[in-house]
Amino acid sequence: MQKSKGNNALTGWLMVSPLALVLFIFLVLPIVMIAVVSFWQTTAFSIVPAFQLENYEFLFGSPVTYTVFINTFKYAILTWIFTVLIGFTVAYYLAFHIRSLTWQVVLFLLCTIPFLTSNIIRMISWIPFLGRNGIANSTLISWGLIDEPVEWLLFSDFSVVLAFVHIYTLFMVVPIFNTMMRIDKGIIEAARDGGASGSQILSNIIIPLTKPGIMIGTIFVVTLVMGDFFTVRIMSGSQSANVGRLISNDISLLQYPSASATAIILLLTVLIVIAVLLRFVDIRKEL
């Protein structure tokens, strides 16, 4: 008895160790390293180990940091709103309006086809489309809707959010579709038999039961948008910045300690956001 108990514990440790080891080496250690470097000092060409708070002082002392964090949240929230609306609608249509499983699968795969190309290419193809002399502007002019090209279509917050929504909507569709498919159709029939209207079914049954899917999608979208710097750089014509760009600018200018400090703050912010989100829905219970 004693022996088998010991064996169980050993088996448990052995089973968990590969993953723990991988996570330790490839996740925990790098983050610890980043945290350590964030207290170091830089000169023009070298990094000096030290313990000083200058990087954080500069970060919190600069008004730009706050604007950039506000910008990051603005992009995240706007993108979230649009991806939820689009993602929910698409998933709802696929799950409840398409009757045959074959068609559901076919249409679902259809949604993913654009995502087989590089998202950088999908993003960059917006540029000639939205440009001053691009297709969008020339079409609007030929329709007589506008007299002069609209400038805010490209290199603006509009184009940044547009590209984010375009790139990340699928991350919302997939988990929502997945949870919707697991809703027992019997519940909906029962509600209908009981005289519930379409909107009552939606608000009292489908939305509450899809919450975990929405939450998973939200975590995907919010964390991806908060960490993305390339989309912001390309679509804003380098003119706006989110935290990711601040970090990437620092890195390209060899300011590793200052980049690390910003990265640590971003990591903490994202963790707080996720913690808050998880307060709303207990994903593990609902799955």
Binding site: V64, D250, L253
Partner: peptide
């Protein structure tokens, strides 16, 4: 150029891009 105050300039530049 790379100036003596390069470090400072780089940070200010970063702020300019983010402004």
């Amino acid at each position: 150029s790379v100036m003596d105050e390069n470090q400072y300039m780089v940070r200010k530049w970063n702020e300019f891009i983010a402004a």
